[in-house]
Write a protein that binds this DNA or RNA. Structure first.
Lengths: 198, 198, 198, 198
DNA sequence: AATGAATGAGACTTCATTCAT
DNA sequence: TATGAATGAAGTCTCATTCAT
């Protein structure tokens, strides 16, 4: 019985993801993908309509566990502050463990002509909405300042975390995750905390 | 004095930049560039080693005014808080006016095989260092909290501003720059402000 | 068993060889080769790394029968004198039947940047070594003069035969091979014959 | 006053010759020639109709001293045997001192499509005719065997000497010219000597 | 379910030549 | 006499996709 990671599709996903992280979508050829996956070229076109659709499916495939991780994180949190901190931490951990995916997210997100552009944006929106919920909750509870827009702040915090995480992984991967998380926590939690004035 | 060579190069820079803004680097062909520039195809290869080197030169060419803008912004600011706010605003304005460039910065920054990778990284580092200086000044002056790392915070704020700016331009370009700047200012200035505790 | 791949390669070899015979390597385009072979352009690049590698493979492909011809010629000869004469004749026949190849051998042999340079040199060395063996045998048997260097003489005789053969084919192709062979035989066999003094 | 070697044409000749010897006619670009010559690209087209005509003129320029050398060699020789030996030696010396030219002679001689093909062939014929004269003289004098064709033998000896010389310069340049000349002399003089039978 | 040879549109690049200065 | 920017035809090569097996 074939385990999930042995299936042809999954081998193609892994190969495509690691290659696209290294060289980008356009920079990665179908030849390279099938070679790394250890299958023949036609196999891609047997399973998918094309290269772009393979990536689209790959994104969808990796999306569910990510969503679940964020959902669970948000549910487990007792307060908006704790939630925000936990979400940042969850994002950092996810980026650390799915660096290839994260890199792809950042570098391919703004390529509007891509077939899977919508899928990628939906993923991003989904993640941001968890941040937004925590921030909105905090504002409603009076612990976060009310003069910020929850959606804007969520997007900003998400972007800050992603870029910081990539910097971290590229320039100082030896720094423990805790240190990075703490730095972001200080910046982020203060940014939204109420009872202060700019 | 503008030589004929300089004129031609500039026409190629303008054509390439506007096209790359529309379609990305890989999506733009040399044929399109020379057609828009009104020169022959061989002209690109007379002046540059190839398409990538044209873009590299383009980046270098447009880099100086950008650096100057940030330098002047930092110098004109009376206090670290004002400086930080002005830098954010300068970054937003630059992204608005050089959207093609900004998009390229984000999408090509992590593509290590590109010939202009180093140039792009130097540009990014240069911009971030202005943020870092303002933050370090603020920490030294006691107006910014001392438990954050200036370099880390600079990179985080830069990333936050870039992603917010791209979101803005893509999803709600009708929002005035002032509104965006104000939102980021609130988040950013509070994040680093001293006299508060997370 | 001829696979589809082998068939295609052979069509490309035939097309390339006949064209290069007419117009030389640089003068022959990939477009012409694929047109004559009746395949699509991409097929060349599916089977070979490039135009030069196609020719390299072509050389290697046609090399074995040539080597075999020389080997058999040498083995069939009863004495060193007969062997030398037979080798000259074999070389002439081969040049007559593979004029394209022979021309390429002479014109591309000293072009060190070509990818097939090594293959071509190996071919030349292989042919010359047959001459060398016959001459060395003759010297050992006392029928060839002992004051000549077998390797040097082999290379000289080979060169003499090639240049004579090309002259023949270009300037007086109507001359029968026998006449040419007899002229060279007279020059060559006397040159190495013992019992005389310069 | 400009010496002969300082003239623009001569600088172009030297540059072109050394480059063509390295990389062949087609492999050498006009850009490379003018760079090595230290002049601008347009200069070539000011002095010559094109790249091929530059080479044609270069051949003609180097032809006269070569012809003179052979003429003097032949005139100075007292007997046909001495003449033949001296001609071989003259050819070796010339190849040693004009290696680039010699290489070009061998590699470009059979490219029939070249504009200067005729010029090159005339040069070759001119050299061979000196050999032919010496051999014909020897046959008439009864010192060379009468069953060989003087023209054929001349061409064969010339080819043998050229290929031996290139082998020598490429594979064992440390061998003194005298040793090479002596080996060829033994082969050549015996080949044509009368009073022997194949 | 999978293969891999074949395709061909379209990309990048080369380079001999022209010409205004 | 000399320059060098500009040209564009023609070349080599890439690669997503197709399809007979």
């Amino acid at each position: 019985m074939a385990t999930r990671s042995d299936t042809t599709k999954c081998k193609l996903y892994d190969a495509a993801l690691s290659l696209i992280a290294e060289k980008g979508f356009t920079g990665t050829t179908v030849d390279e993908i099938v070679e790394r996956a250890g299958v023949a070229k036609g196999t891609v076109y047997y399973h998918f309509a094309g290269k772009a659709e393979l990536v689209e499916a790959l994104i969808a495939d990796r999306l569910t566990p990510l969503q679940e991780q964020f959902r669970a994180t948000l549910e487990a949190a007792s307060t908006p502050s704790v939630a925000l901190e936990a979400l940042v931490r969850a994002e950092l951990e996810w980026i650390r463990d799915n660096r290839a995916f994260a890199k792809m997210l950042v570098t391919e997100l703004w390529r509007e002509e891509r077939v899977w552009h919508d899928t990628l944006f939906a993923l991003r929106h989904s993640i941001i909405s968890y941040f937004e919920r925590a921030i909105a909750d905090g504002i409603a509870a009076g612990v976060f300042r009310s003069d910020i827009d929850a959606a804007f702040a969520a997007s900003a915090l998400f972007g800050m975390t992603v870029t910081s995480a990539l910097d971290w992984l590229v320039f100082s991967p030896e720094t423990p995750l805790d240190t990075v998380a703490e730095q972001i926590r200080r910046l982020a939690s203060m940014a939204v905390a109420s009872g202060t004035q700019a």
